[in-house]
Design a protein around this nucleic acid. Sequence first.
DNA 1: ATCTATGGCAAGCCGA
DNA 2: TCGGCTTGCCAT
Length: 898
Amino acid sequence: MEEQRQLDEYSISDQMLEKQQESSELVLSKVETERIQRQDNPKQLPSSYFVSASYDGKRGKACINLYDPISKRIYFWHDTSKHKPYLLTNLSPYELDQLDRVKSHPGFDHFEQVEKFDPLLDKMVSLTKVVARDPLAIGGRPRGCLREIIPEDHAKVSTPEQPEAKVWEAAIKYYQCFIYDSHLIPGTSYSIKNGELIPATVENTENIVEKIQTTFDIQEGEEKAHIEQWAQLLEYPAPPFRRVALDIEVFSPIATRVPDPREAPYPVICACLTSKIDKDQVLLLKRKGVKDGRERLPSDASLKFFEQEKDLIEAIFKALWDYPFVITFNGDDFDLRYLAHRAEKLGIPRKEIPIEVGRRVCLLKSGVHIDLYKFFYNRSIQIYAFSNRYRDVTLDDVGKALIGLAKYDLNKPFADLSYSELARYCYRDSEITLKLTSFDDDLVLKLILVLARISKMPMEDVSRQGVSRWIRNFLHFEHRRRNFLIPNKADIFSLKGKTATTAIIKGKKYKGAIVVKPVPGVHFNVAVMDFASLYPSIIKIWNLGYQTILCPHEDDKDNIVPGTPHWICRKYKALESLLIGSLRDLRVNWYKPKSKDKTLSADVLSWYNIIQSALKVILNASYGVFGAESFDLYCPPVAEATAAIARHALTLIVKQAHDLGIEVLYGDTDSVFLKNPSREQIDELAAWSSKELKMSLDVDKVYRYAVFSSRKKNYLGIFDDGRVDVKGLTGKKRHIPRFIKDAFNQMKSRLGKVSSSEEFESAKRDIKKIVLDRYMRLKRREWENLDDLAFHVVLGEAPERYIKTTPQHVMVARMLKDRDIEMRAGDLVSFVKIKPRDMVVRNRREVISVMPMQLAADSDVDVDKYVAYLQSTFEQVLDALGLEFDEIIGLTKLERFM
DNA sequence: ATCTATGGCAAGCCGA
DNA sequence: TCGGCTTGCCAT
């Protein structure tokens, strides 16, 4: 059966390929029509991945995109049930009847009475479900939708003593609503049998889930059931993704300016489509006066010239119709948007354009578009999935950091490039884009797939939206599954919005973590113990959630969170606690250890590593979202309680360590640094933590020695193998000039070679030499390259938005603007420090002490400023080593006199 | 339209 | 001149 089906699929796709190859022009629409018909609502479909969802306005139905990993095609399935968009309201059908604009609303369908459990009020409530024919009738339009009409109109007809009309669940995207109500899980497989969608199961998965279950035998009831459900999702295999990466280049008369994609005023001059499986395509537009050039393309790419831009674009579109996954870097805002508008301008009919242009996104009509810029821009992804390995979210920087592939350097504008130079440049971009999805066994796409499963979101959304949306959506899913009313943000806040602690930082909502003052000096044999996943553990163990904190039960008011007046419910388990807690357990007790288990095959290891990093990303954000106003279940006391319990736990651990006779050198939030502890002491402390705090405290790392100054969040830790952890020191910050950073790194590697206190003396001598050498080179103005002295600071905002002060990098941006170089929020500004001088900047006289790199000369440099930087950078470490900067350089002054 | 949190350090601006 | 405030970058 299986084989037969495969053959059929392949023969169909082969035929199609041939057809397309026969004549590349005009046939497109015919072929496409045929294909779309075949793709649309097949009566039968073997197990295929639910990758995306949308609302089909023409049919008034939710539409699911299914990716068949065998034929490697996308198929569409439309909802066959009577599911419709709706909202909930406290008005009865009778009351709603009085509101003219409701029943006469063109999108209105009918009323239903429903019972839901309200987690805020802790009781069942009777509500009316107002069902509509299309989602826009519920909300989404600027005016005149039901979610606004109901409260507005009711206020007009009701008496003051009547309760006001409220609506719930009225701002949920329709396809999400459909996913929740139908219990569909994006990222997993479904087959179609006789037109109906059926969940698919994989036998092998079941076995592993069983194994996981036995690991968690200690857990009981609900918790265990959830662990099992998550495990089932996560163990489910991932398909091979058939994909193409696209990059285009557009002509621009002004070299520094990228044409506006909404206008699409100039021709597309080059496009590259890279898949590495099919033949890569380089498409070039013939233009007058352009040289061929000599640069060579990889032999597996095919080069094609077009006389007409329209033909070139149609060739791109052919691929966009064909591939189930299309990868771009900034395609939402540029490539796809430009192509769509340009195509329209050239008279290509709308229905032959494969792109759906949205306000902020560009989606594909027959596939999934992943814009890697959006994905890598996500701070949680940047920090927790890729440990800050890339700094700027540019193709060049991300490419260099993750796959070691940089963009081609261009030293002239596009207009001056030969065909081969242009092709090589564009091809490299598409190559980087593709490889960013394929490295480490398709890590990025699999990560997106796993996140789609957890969050219950389509792959497109999960790759574009932030972690707070992911968390919100799986909580929404759970609410619907249990017939819980999803509360309004305002209601949570008015009932449970007040925090009771004062933050140390001005302007913050509540008090955060503790940092233990470090013991300055050099300490040998330092063990760092930390709580595994502290905040998620607290949320789990203390049953935190908007429902359970400050609950309405009198007899729970004595169940107090230490350090706060808040109390916690004992009667119900909070959904947040349950879901975040079970994800935590799975990561800590299964996926994290398994991802390091050498007995597993490479495939399984890499898959487990993907899962554990997906969990890490979610868990690390899971506390913060409760303190984020943008989060739909915003509940500051939950965040506050989490932080308070963490302070409590850390304080107790520090005290307990002390009682066990261990010296605590330092601690931050969830960690304690222990000086030369014995095995027994470590075990005792860990045992005490499990018993008294119900949290596991493990040895995270051991330093051969650590160097502390008196500053918090500032230290060096040297591992046994000579690697050096540098935390918080100025020498590692990215805005510091390379000239200083280099010296700092020399010191760092020298410290890595020290293995005993006896060896310190010679290391100190070398370090003195390093510092002195830098100092002398500065004084003698002996730097190799002015760039080495550049500071690099990111503009947090647009230059004109700095009102209160004018920081140096902003001054630099303004100086550049006078020379027509525009700097925007997020740009990195590079400058050197100079002796103060008067200058006119933006028509104002200013005293400036900085100079943009573009304008600076060696003679401008204020050497003493750099000496001061050298001093402050090194003092953070010299302090602890018993060295003095002044002495190091003072010595030479004497010597010079002698 | 977009958005997890707070704590800590260094530098520089700017008004008292 | 001092000290509060703003800014950016980092730790967790």
